[in-house]
């Protein structure tokens, strides 16, 4: 085997990785995601007839384009933006109420689930870039050599730079094309804020899910700070003449049938409490789609096109509210 060829390949591979890393590092430093989100609100002010969906991954999975199409076919020219971000609790949206109000949507749909009213746990996921972790070990090694030395940033790869290079590349191209670095909606076909998790691009057969599901316990905390956050979100939006719709997000029947009865009561009480305090109707999608093979797991509808019925249900709710 000619070592020159191997050498050229090694150089090409290393150059490719280094180039990708450097460009993405520059991108991550200069394109602050949270800053982009804030700027997005001010840019979208001009868009008329818009509806926002807020919540976490259970709302993120909604196909917003499909809602817009559905509404368009019913004669309503409304642009739907799914702002949901995976793993964001209601407190996050409470903290961004000013921006939402400023961008002046016609309607905000808030998706809630029992899981939103618990103390969040930190999830540990397997890093797909495990082979780059060697640099973290190197960094730790450097730390242990000298008492006062710290792992250099140079040595510590930020593996986020490699997670979805396509999105950053497209944003960089847009920046080069338009000179605008903050505007990032439209680049992702649907949701402007989240690139989502691959786990959501999956369908698990309900019979199989049923076999896998044991007794479900979520540990909802009544009168939690999340509950207060939700009430504040609804009241603030209403005060600013923004129509608010509250929906419970869909769950599959294996979860619902195995759900602890006492906890279900806590959840029902929580919904009644919120309805009473805010005077808004809650649309219960939680049970409505439970028999359909559209779930990625026990709490998420799939992001695959099979989950479009979820979007259709939301479109129907929007139409119903607009008619009222």
């Amino acid at each position: 085997m000619n070592l020159k060829i191997v050498g050229v390949l090694a150089i090409c591979f290393t150059m490719g990785i280094v180039f990708l890393y450097v460009v993405n590092d520059w991108y991550n430093t200069n394109f602050d995601v949270e800053k982009q989100r804030l700027n997005w609100y001010s840019e979208v002010v001009e868009t008329p007839n818009k509806v926002f969906l807020i919540g976490n991954s259970r709302v993120y999975v909604v196909d917003e384009l499909h809602i817009s199409h559905h509404l368009f076919q019913s004669g309503k020219n409304i642009t739907v933006y799914d702002l949901a971000i995976g793993a964001k609790m209601l407190n996050y949206w409470q903290n961004h109420l000013d921006e939402i109000v400023f961008s002046n949507p016609e309607m905000v749909i808030v998706g809630i689930d029992p899981q939103d009213f618990i103390v969040p746990k930190k999830e540990i996921e397997r890093n797909p870039y495990w082979f780059l972790e060697v640099n973290t070990f190197l960094a730790k090694g450097i730390t242990s050599i000298g008492e006062n030395s710290h792992p250099s940033d140079f040595w510590r790869f930020d593996t986020n730079n490699f997670k979805n290079p396509k999105l950053s590349s497209l944003k960089i191209i847009q920046f080069l094309e338009t000179g605008v670095s903050e505007k990032n909606f439209n680049l992702i076909p649907t949701q402007p804020f989240d690139s989502g998790s691959e786990k959501l691009y999956y369908i698990i057969d309900l019979d199989r899910l049923d076999k896998l599901t044991e007794k479900s316990q979520i540990d909802i905390i009544p009168n939690s700070s999340e509950e207060s956050a939700l009430i504040e979100i609804i009241q603030t939006l209403k005060k600013n003449n923004i129509n608010v719709i509250l929906v419970t997000t869909p769950r599959p029947y294996p979860f619902l049938e195995n759900w602890d009865i006492d906890e279900k009561k806590i959840w029902d009480d929580l919904l009644v409490r919120i309805e009473k305090q805010t005077q808004i109707k809650i649309y219960p999608l939680q049970n409505q789609l439970s028999d359909l093979n559209i779930f990625a797991d026990n709490s998420h509808v799939t992001r695959l096109p099979e989950g479009k019925i979820y979007a259709e249900e939301l479109a129907k709710i929007i139409l119903l509210e607009l008619d009222n």
């Binding site: 020159k4 050229v8 090409c12 591979f13 150059m15 990785i17 180039f19 290079p165 396509k166």
Partner: peptide
Amino acid sequence: KLPFWGIFILFILLGIFFFYDGN
């Protein structure tokens, strides 16, 4: 020739690396 072939491979790699979809 090896250097030109290397440049071709590098371009292919850059295309793949920069437009690799996270999912």
